[in-house]
Amino acid sequence: MTEAVPTSVRAPGDENLPRVRSLIVGSRMMLAANTTLQLTFLFAYLYLRANNFGGMWRPGVGTPAPGITLMILLVPVVTTLVLGAAVGVAGRGDRRALTRILGPALLLGAATIAVRVYQLYHTGYDLAAGTYVDIAVIWLAVILAEFVLGALWMVSIYNSHVRQTVVASHSHVRALFEYWLYATVVAVVVSGLIQFVT
């Protein structure tokens, strides 16, 4: 009776297991839900900007320094690339190589959190400085939260893999990669918006 509850994610080639399919479909569905969330903030941004009620959209506020923004964006982008490589390694089923690549990915994930926290607290904005700042800050905070979730996911894959409780399968790593890629694309687009569409 109890074998009906599969309890571990198995090695490569497991895509047909219902549990793994559920993971993949489920994580993509979460990205779909996430899209609504991002559109909510995009709508708010563009709506407040277009209306500029009482001239209070961006009264005398500058944009973030582009150099710092680029540096901050670089970290999640590099993390995405490393995770992409991890997907390839996991596809080949090379467990040791996967361990070697997941470690740096984890460090980069932590670095992503660090730089984005820094960004949130060093915008140079005064919170009473109009709705541009308001919407930018809360949007960046939401994106930070998504990176935190992604990093936690990375930690769980890494720890289970290293402790050999769950072998990180191809589909597992790919779902994480897709999530991180999505968050990174959002981060880049939103940074571009805050920088150029002011």
Partner: peptide, 23 residues
């Protein structure tokens, strides 16, 4: 998302929904 914005208004003096502050 909307509730996050409203709590931001209510705790951090953001003005996303307050006309006097551009919201």
């Amino acid at each position: 998302g909307a509730i996050a914005m409203e709590t931001f208004d209510r705790t951090y003096l953001a003005t996303l929904f307050v006309p006097a502050g551009g919201g």
